Simulated scan of single mutants.
Amino acid sequence: MQPYTLPEDTVWTEVAPGNRRAVLSHRPELMLVAFRFEEGAIGALHSHPHTQVSYVAEGHFDVTVDGVTTRLGPASSFIVAPNLVHGVVALTDGLLIDTFTPCRRDFLTDQN
Rank of each mutant, 00 (worst) to 15 (best):
M1V: 12
M1T: 13
P3K: 14
Y4T: 14
T5L: 04
T5D: 01
P7D: 07
P7E: 08
E8H: 12
D9Y: 01
D9E: 13
T10Y: 00
V11I: 15
W12G: 03
T13W: 02
T13S: 11
T13R: 15
E14K: 13
V15L: 13
A16I: 01
A16T: 05
P17D: 12
P17Q: 09
G18V: 03
G18L: 02
G18D: 01
G18R: 02
N19I: 07
N19Y: 05
V23W: 10
V23Y: 09
L24D: 00
S25V: 10
S25D: 06
S25W: 12
H26L: 01
P28E: 14
L30P: 09
L30G: 15
L30A: 15
L30W: 15
M31N: 07
V33K: 07
A34W: 07
A34K: 14
A34P: 01
A34N: 11
F35A: 09
F35H: 15
F35R: 02
R36Q: 14
F37K: 01
E38V: 01
E39V: 08
E39Q: 13
E39T: 13
A41H: 03
I42C: 02
I42P: 00
G43K: 03
G43S: 07
L45Q: 13
H46P: 08
S47C: 08
H48S: 10
H48Q: 11
H48M: 08
H48T: 05
P49S: 06
P49T: 02
H50F: 01
T51A: 14
T51N: 06
S54D: 12
Y55D: 01
Y55E: 03
V56T: 06
V56E: 05
V56C: 11
V56D: 05
E58T: 14
E58Y: 10
G59M: 03
F61T: 06
D62G: 08
V65D: 03
V68W: 05
V68M: 07
R71G: 13
L72E: 05
L72I: 12
G73N: 05
A75P: 01
A75F: 10
A75Q: 15
A75I: 04
S76M: 13
S76K: 12
S77R: 09
I79A: 14
I79R: 14
I79W: 03
V80W: 08
V80P: 06
A81I: 00
A81C: 01
A81P: 05
P82G: 05
P82K: 05
N83T: 09
N83Y: 06
N83F: 08
V85Q: 12
H86P: 07
G87E: 07
V88P: 00
A90N: 02
L91S: 01
G94W: 06
G94D: 12
L95W: 08
L95Q: 07
L95T: 06
L96Y: 04
I97V: 15
T99L: 00
T99Q: 07
T99H: 04
T99E: 03
T99S: 14
T101A: 15
T101K: 00
P102V: 00
R105Q: 11
R105S: 10
D106S: 13
D106A: 11
F107M: 14
L108P: 04
T109E: 15
D110E: 13
D110K: 11
N112T: 14
